[in-house]
């Protein structure tokens, strides 16, 4: 019974969503037809058509899936390394006072510089290839994950810690069974932020220097003044960004549930 109710709600919501998207597309189409924007902007039909087309007809060297894979290939390894390292260092900084005092100044030095601003120097250090892109994505992931891991480790309920101590748990045990599980939700929100930051950064990096990838699609549209291509790129970026965020949320839902149950 519960399920049918939920289903109904879902159906209702999707109808609303569909209507709102349709209205948006109609306004877009209408605006393009009737106003001056039409000179530079294509209508939604053309963009959608071109977007589907881009799966079969290559833009530059690759088709849309090819470009997306290139971008993901730049994001994922660096994101994973940055996240893992960020979690380790963040928790260490949040839990061990002296680690924090030693690493904090260094961290505070890189934190305020946006990863995008690292692009030029990373090109000098790591060249124009993938190395420089991995480096800045690493930074884009590392910085927010550290921040959230620190606050995760610091937010542990002191009552729980005292209980653990009183019941005779040693430091290691407390760390493993209380601090780590307690930090997981924080870490996950850091991972979420880091993922969207990484995605935005790869787009920027590809716009600044590359010859493939979704960021390249939009920047190369400037070469020929092809606004449709630029919008096709935006659609691709949006969809992949959306899928990444949803996947992360799923993962968080599963892992956090598991943590809670274990506690």
């Amino acid at each position: 019974m519960m399920d049918t109710k939920k289903l109904k709600q879902l159906a209702k919501d999707s109808v609303y969503g569909l209507i709102s998207v349709c209205v948006f597309l109609c306004i877009w189409a209408f605006g393009v037809r009737t106003s001056d924007i039409g000179i530079v902007m294509p209508g939604p039909g053309k963009v959608i058509y071109e977007f589907i087309q881009s799966f079969f007809v290559p833009i530059g060297k690759y088709t849309m899936p090819g470009h997306i894979l290139w971008s993901l290939y730049r994001v994922l390894p660096a994101y994973i390394v940055g996240s893992v390292l960020g979690i380790v260092i963040g928790i260490a900084m949040g839990w061990f006072r002296y680690v924090n005092s030693f690493l904090r100044p260094l961290y505070e030095m890189i934190r305020p510089i946006p990863p995008i601003a690292w692009i030029p120097i990373s090109i000098v250090w790591f060249g124009i290839g993938e190395g420089s892109k991995w480096f800045i994505i690493f930074l884009a992931a590392f910085v927010p994950v550290v921040l959230n891991s620190i606050s995760g480790a610091k937010s542990v309920d002191p009552l729980l810690l005292k209980c653990g101590e009183m019941l005779g748990a040693d430091k290691k045990y407390i760390f493993r069974t209380i601090v780590l599980p307690y930090s997981v939700p924080y870490i996950f929100s850091g991972l979420q932020v880091a993922l969207s930051a990484s995605w935005a950064t790869v787009v920027a990096a590809e716009m600044i220097r590359s010859s493939e990838g979704v960021g390249w699609i939009i920047i190369s549209s400037m070469d020929t003044n092809n606004v449709t291509q630029s919008l096709v790129g935006i659609v691709g970026i949006g969809i992949v960004g959306f899928i990444l965020a949803v996947m992360m949320r799923e993962l968080e839902g599963r892992l956090c549930r598991w943590t809670v149950r274990e506690n």
Partner: peptide
Amino acid sequence: ALSMILCLALSFALAGGSGE
């Protein structure tokens, strides 16, 4: 699981490094 992720990440990084 964590160490597996770590290994995966490292192998990615190394593969990239050697290609560079």
